[in-house]
Design a protein around this nucleic acid. Structure first.
Lengths: 203, 203
DNA sequence: GTCTATATACAGATAGAC
DNA sequence: GTCTATCTGTATATAGAC
């Protein structure tokens, strides 16, 4: 027996998957309605506009992210916590090779149209950054933590783009090995080497 | 006196700028025609389809890239050559904050629709990678060069995404300082530290 | 709450006069 | 080679019966 929100959930799930695969602009309401097995006209009972569906999808990604951050938070130490995040990306590498990073893709595409959707997408990356910064602080990196988090997230996002562009999931797997060694070095020397280093301040 | 190809050039230039700002799918032929000051119907005398304009724009970016690679090639040593590339990104940081990296943006967006446009865009990143790999080989990094080039380009692309997402050009400026120190270390120790390390083979 | 039919707008593309 | 007018398809969104 379908709950009241059943169709709404199906629509958001369908939109989330389709937007990941095709991007926001290329995904039509007809696509979403079909994938969710809801008649097109009925979509508007649940979402007033296409943008409203976008908001719901990003909100869903946000909840997903915060659940994940909480899970990773349980790991034994800062290095393991950061690696849990990278491991998640490795586990998604096949999908990333096909369709790119869901979060990075949203930020990239929506930044071009500005507005509240772009801001909502940016917050996903921003929250990830803040979480990573907290981990580096936990490693005793102090003021350098912000720059380290920036480079850490940039490395993941950059590798995700190359993974998608070259259709090669191994790129992300290699990144994890690389970052693992690097985190050992950072943790032991308390001195970031690079391309992750304390430089100026990030506004 | 307008040359035979005058309008064609104007159309490609207009399309290049608009696609950078708005993305390929959001840019209409009417947009391009207006920006190039060419009547809409006349566009089709120069380009049979919108995809054909996309091809011309990517080909243009390709020539631009190869000219740039040749220029950077003139620098004194491998480190300076790689930094010339990073410096170029720093010089474009304001534009990148507004509209993202033109090449990364194309790869991201076009990967989702596949086809020859996606391949053409991917070749821009691939050529950049091969050039960077050559520089690392020139530094005596041997077999590790490919992985180093991958991480190097990933760092630039990742930082470009964050620059665009957070609208902060300083992110790219900081990256240059960071990468400069890192290249010193790599060059002197002949041993990559990280997040750029020799790991497995990249297919 | 649900769904069919349709309004409205605008995209890519073409016809054909000049 | 150039440009106006227009065809055709399809997207978002609405109206209104059920």
């Amino acid at each position: 027996m379908p709950r009241k929100t059943d169709k709404r959930v199906r629509l958001v799930d369908a939109a989330k998957a389709l937007i990941h695969r095709q991007g926001f602009n290329l995904t039509t309401l007809a696509d979403i309605a079909q994938e969710a097995d809801v008649p097109l006209g009925n979509v508007y009972y649940y979402f007033k506009t296409k943008e409203a569906i976008g908001e719901a999808v990003i909100a869903n990604r946000g909840r997903e992210l915060h659940d994940a951050l909480q899970t990773w938070e349980k790991a034994a130490n800062a290095k393991e916590r950061l690696l849990a995040y990278v491991q998640f990306e490795v586990d998604s590498a096949e999908e990333t090779a096909k369709s790119g990073c869901p979060v990075g893709g949203l930020c990239q595409e929506l930044a071009k149209q500005g507005g509240s959707l772009a801001d909502a997408a940016a917050k996903l990356l921003s929250d990830t950054m803040l979480w990573a910064e907290k981990q580096f602080q936990g490693m005793g990196m102090g003021e350098a933590s912000r720059g380290l988090a920036m480079q850490f997230v940039a490395a993941v996002q950059g590798n995700a783009l190359l993974t998608n562009t070259f259709k090669d999931p191994k790129i992300l797997a290699n990144l994890k090995v690389s970052l693992s060694k690097w985190l050992d070095k950072v943790a032991s020397t308390k001195n970031a080497t690079v391309p992750i280093e304390k430089v100026e301040e990030y506004a």
